[in-house]
Amino acid sequence: MSDPVLELTGLEKTFNPDTPGEIRVLRGADLTLARGEVVALVAPSGSGKSTLLHIAGLLDGADAGQVKINGRDMGAQSDRRRTETRRDEVGFVYQFHHLLPEFTALENVVLPQLAAGVSDRKARARSEELLTRVGIADRASHRPAELSGGEQQRVAFCRALANGPAILLADEPTGNLDPTTSDTVFAALMELVRDTGLSALIATHNLELAARMDRVLRLDDGVITNGL
């Protein structure tokens, strides 16, 4: 696989080490994500897929192993450079939207751009474009409590893509939605990912959704294997 955007090599992670409650979550996990590729990560609850995504997105550190983003070894970077990479090159979507309740849908998408130094005018234009792409431009002035679950998650997608990341990491992005809404929201996410040429690693329990991605990986007993 040429020119990978994300490489995880030999990741190990243990919680409560050297105690009776020790939990070895990752046992040498390896993963490569190509540019423009959408990969499903399938695993049962408690298997460590959230931990793996957090390490891949530089939200947490591994006990051993290497994370490379766009060819750069993140373990060799300064804290500042890692923060900049996480802000500019990685987008996150979670099962729960985590939108800021006091701000409108548009403002929730604008804020990460302002934090990255984008002008208010450009940030608003970008936000309006993204909300239009996922079909909720008419809800831009509504706060999260005034939106349905599916609408809230679509705003979360837009927020994750606001700064034009190279990688999208999504942890059960439709897991909190009913089946019909889940399918609609997932279709909006896939269209957005394909249109922007993103690379995406999407953790899901839904095997039907997983089958619609380019490749399916399974996290099993701390290691990654191919297929369902």
Rank of each mutant, 00 (worst) to 15 (best):
M1R: 05
P4F: 06
L11A: 02
L11D: 00
E12G: 13
K13D: 07
F15T: 08
T19C: 01
P20H: 10
A29P: 00
A29N: 04
L33E: 02
A34N: 02
R35A: 11
R35Y: 07
E37D: 03
V42T: 05
P44E: 09
S45C: 08
G48Y: 05
K49C: 01
H54V: 13
I55V: 08
L58Y: 06
G61F: 09
G61H: 15
D63F: 06
A64Y: 07
V67T: 05
G71A: 09
M74W: 04
M74R: 04
G75S: 13
G91A: 01
F92H: 01
F92K: 01
H98R: 15
L99K: 11
L99P: 04
N108I: 10
N108C: 03
V110E: 13
L111P: 02
P112D: 00
P112K: 10
Q113M: 15
G117E: 06
V118E: 12
S119F: 07
S119P: 00
R124S: 01
R124W: 00
A125Y: 12
T132R: 07
T132C: 09
T132P: 05
V134F: 06
G135Y: 02
I136H: 13
I136P: 13
D138Q: 12
R139A: 15
H142R: 14
L147W: 07
S148P: 01
G150I: 03
G150M: 04
R154S: 13
F157S: 12
F157Y: 15
A160K: 01
A162V: 14
P165Q: 09
A170I: 11
T174M: 05
L177Y: 00
L177R: 04
T181H: 03
S182V: 09
A188K: 14
M190L: 13
E191N: 11
V193C: 06
D195A: 10
G197H: 11
L198G: 00
L201S: 03
I202H: 03
T204V: 04
T204F: 00
R212A: 10
M213A: 03
D221W: 03
G222Q: 12
T225L: 13
